[in-house]
Simulated assay, not measured.
Amino acid sequence: MTLAYDAAGDGPAVVLLHSAVCDRRMWDPQWPALADAGYRVVRCDFRGFGQSLLPDRRHNDAEDVLDLLDSLGVEQAALIASSYGGRVALEIAARRPDRVSAMALLCSGLPGHEPSDELRAFGEREDALIEAGDIAGAVELNVDTFLGPDAEEAVRDEVRAMQRRAFEVQLAAPEGAGRKNVDIDLSAVKAPGLALSGGLDLADFREIAAGLPGLLGDTRHVELPWAGHLPSLERPAAVTDLLIGFLGETVPAG
């Protein structure tokens, strides 16, 4: 298996998919609590993040996750996904609805979303800093943009470390590396869903979360007024309780 991952616990499978600002370590606060609640928990690093290196060819993150589940003998799983991980979760649920029992999407991305001027300006600023060799500046831009005011300094340091690692891995990518996108039909999604948004997040992600109930058949939206883009790190205990409550309704353990 090409993806670095951790697995723990017994019971219904739950897969944690990380944000593009982080890697699988972002789930440290939720990891033991979900296992203790009676779930078999799997978390992985997408290629280009954490301990998963990029190959010398194009890859598809949804297919990588499905391959990981096959290797672990997991036929169906609930997906808990943050930001870019939410975009991957939606692709998995659309392409293989039989494999997904439920989805909790935290400040999710959306396949085909057209970025706002604000989000586009962020990307241009990040690209300019990287091209200038100012990796530290690009890291700080991400920390300042995506963490809300409730994030403690220790959490900011953790996100700094994860984002810096992502830049290091991606800047060392071999020739031919890149993502392979696939067109999907969201009407194929069958799993019940919870879409969380942060009241202090960028407008793109607030609008995506608010619109998901209209795109998916069985999804509800909850806004967290205190949250930025990474609520599971900003107020981990509150988000863990929300996730365990959602799983208890949709994929009860035991």
Rank of each mutant, 00 (worst) to 15 (best):
G133Q: 03
Q163Y: 13
I80L: 15
A210Y: 01
L215G: 05
N60E: 09
R25D: 11
R164T: 10
R220V: 15
A37H: 07
P55V: 02
D201R: 00
A77S: 12
L216K: 04
Y84D: 01
R24D: 04
G193R: 02
S101M: 09
L242W: 04
A104Y: 02
R206L: 07
T250I: 04
P111A: 12
V143T: 09
A195D: 04
M162L: 13
A7D: 05
E153N: 09
V42H: 00
L129W: 02
C22M: 14
A94Q: 10
A62G: 15
I130M: 10
A188L: 12
R179D: 10
L66T: 11
S52P: 04
Q170S: 12
C107S: 13
Q51F: 13
G86N: 03
D183L: 11
V143P: 05
P55Y: 02
E249L: 14
F146K: 00
V41L: 06
G228Y: 01
L212E: 05
A104I: 04
S82N: 15
A81T: 07
G199T: 04
D64R: 07
L72K: 02
M1K: 05
V41H: 05
E153Y: 11
L186I: 13
A132F: 08
D6V: 09
S52T: 07
A102Y: 02
L242Q: 09
K180T: 01
R87A: 15
R40S: 08
P225R: 08
P225T: 11
I92K: 06
L216H: 06
L3H: 04
Q163F: 14
D157E: 15
D157V: 12
A121W: 10
L106D: 00
D201N: 01
A8N: 03
D241I: 05
A7W: 04
A191K: 06
A8T: 09
F122L: 13
